[in-house]
């Protein structure tokens, strides 16, 4: 797959429209879900901006196997810009009944087929602290390895691994708890999610700006 992606990138850089279309289909679902965690309902808009920039800057990508990470970084930077303007990160609503469905494993295959499961799963991951959520998503939904994930997040690989593991443990706990006693929203109210203020604090942390500047 990586070599196939590399070949597509090379063709697209030479002007091949079909190759670019294939790149979109390969990357867009993961990017959109990742963006949903970062910017909530604005994800589609930010994804559009992301692809505009990818189309424009494709020629500056040096080639090689790092295109997935490069595109993810573009998406992340667009999302962070978006959040800086908004000054907050919206909470991703998690349908409570869907969450309990997810914990009961038998039904999830069917719900995934209907498209419900994916949104719910992503929304549940979005309840993690942001670094953990990003680490888990980049490793699984986007499909980056630990090193690429670290580059995208501007952190050390060890820190990214720790964040991902912590996120997995937290998710496992939530699922186990929900399996026992229906769903008890983490932050109260009808939706599960960290408060907008907490998210905004994450974004305001200098790490993102620093990371964005380190990327070429």
């Amino acid at each position: 797959m990586p070599t196939e992606l590399t070949a597509l990138v090379r063709s697209a850089q030479q002007g091949d429209e079909y190759a670019f279309r294939m790149l979109y289909r390969e990357l867009q679902p993961g990017l959109l879900r990742y963006l949903a965690v970062l910017v909530g309902p604005e994800a589609e808009d930010v994804a559009s901006e992301t692809w505009l920039q990818i189309a424009r800057d494709l020629g500056t990508f040096a080639g090689g196997p790092g295109f997935r990470a490069w595109a993810t970084r573009v998406a992340r930077n667009r999302a962070l810009d978006h959040l800086r303007h908004q000054r907050r990160r919206p909470t991703v609503p998690v349908p409570v009944e869907a969450l309990s469905e997810l914990a009961g494993a038998e039904d999830t295959a069917a719900s995934a087929d209907e498209g419900l499961g994916t949104d719910t799963a992503v929304a549940l991951i979005a309840t993690l602290p942001r670094t953990e959520a990003e680490a888990v998503l980049l490793r699984t939904v986007i499909g980056l390895d630990a090193e690429s994930t670290a580059r995208v997040l501007g952190k050390r690989p060890g820190a990214v691994r720790t964040a991902a593991h912590r996120g997995l443990r937290r998710l496992a706990r939530i699922l186990a708890q929900n399996g026992r006693d229906a769903v008890e929203p983490v932050s109260g109210g009808p939706t599960v999610g960290r408060s907008a203020d907490a998210r905004a604090a994450d974004v305001r942390a200098g790490e993102d700006v620093e990371a964005a500047q380190g990327w070429r």
Partner: peptide, 25 residues
């Protein structure tokens, strides 16, 4: 449940997710 959750989150593209394809192209 955890493996299931991650697998569902990483499921293949759903139709609505590719709506922006023509605009991107």
């Amino acid at each position: 449940p955890l493996a299931n959750l991650l697998a569902v989150a990483a499921a293949p593209a759903r139709p609505g997710e590719l709506d922006g394809e023509d605009a991107a192209v």
